[in-house]
């Protein structure tokens, strides 16, 4: 799941203060699941913004709409109908959703009200942890299912940096366990320690350019 966090209210207010009629769009997908940008959070943000602008004396009308997903055109029907009524759009989706909205309505200013934090897991309700940097070249098979790119502060590919603390935590952050220490522990438990000796060459950082995936059966349709 993609995890997001609401931006500070002042930042959101500042972005949109030049507009009179703003639509705040919630997303029923990931940001709704991580309790950051669903319908409830949209209502909450709108209340906060209204209070904020009341104090500031601004004249802004903010309406709300939550669509099921902001990353798929199939779910934009409700939005298509009313978008013309607004001067600007506030999106509570992840960065992908915000861009998709902006692409779809190129004539409307679109503002993000979340910071897209990471791709992660639910540790518990309201507690999320980053587990993937979507680097595009997965090595989890060699690292006992622990991602060194994400969970090592230095994204080291071939073993620990040498700064691991005595209790097995990271030298950068004492609250974070050293990824390579964890990998070693788990590989040892599985009797697969030989894998740690494997040298992984410097990888190609393909995420420097925009990536896209077209699945095999659809190749013929989307490529010309």
């Amino acid at each position: 799941m993609i995890v997001g966090e609401r931006k500070p209210l002042e930042e959101i207010a500042k972005m949109m203060q030049a507009y009179r009629k703003v639509l705040n769009i919630g997303c029923g997908g990931c940001t709704s699941m991580c309790l950051a940008g669903g319908q409830k959070e949209v209502s909450q943000l709108n209340r906060d913004l209204e209070n904020h602008f009341q104090d500031q004396g601004g004249d802004i009308r903010i309406h709300e709409l939550t669509i099921e997903r902001q990353c798929n055109a199939e779910f934009f029907a409700d939005l298509d109908e009313i978008i013309a009524n607004y001067d600007a759009v506030l999106s509570m989706a992840c960065g992908a959703g915000v861009q998709f909205v902006a692409d779809r309505y190129p004539h409307k200013p679109v503002f993000p009200s979340l910071n897209t934090t990471f791709v992660g897991i639910d540790r518990d309700v309201g507690w999320y942890e980053e587990n993937c940097r979507t680097c595009g070249d997965c090595v989890l098979g060699d690292t006992a299912g622990i991602c060194p790119v994400t969970r090592c502060a230095k994204s080291l590919f071939n073993g620990p940096c040498g700064g691991t603390r005595a209790d097995g935590t990271c030298e950068v952050d004492p609250d974070t366990p050293c990824a390579w220490y964890e990998i070693h522990k788990r590989l040892k438990g599985q009797d697969r320690l030989d894998l740690i000796m494997k040298v992984r060459p410097a990888r190609e950082w393909v995420n420097q350019t925009r990536r896209s995936v077209i699945q095999e059966p659809y190749k013929e349709r989307y490529t010309k």
């Binding site: 055109a73 692409d103 896209s212 077209i214 989307y222 010309k224």
Partner: peptide
């Protein structure tokens, strides 16, 4: 056609 953004051309 803009609704299918970013499909790379072969």
């Amino acid at each position: 056609p803009d609704y299918l953004p970013g499909a790379p051309k072969k």
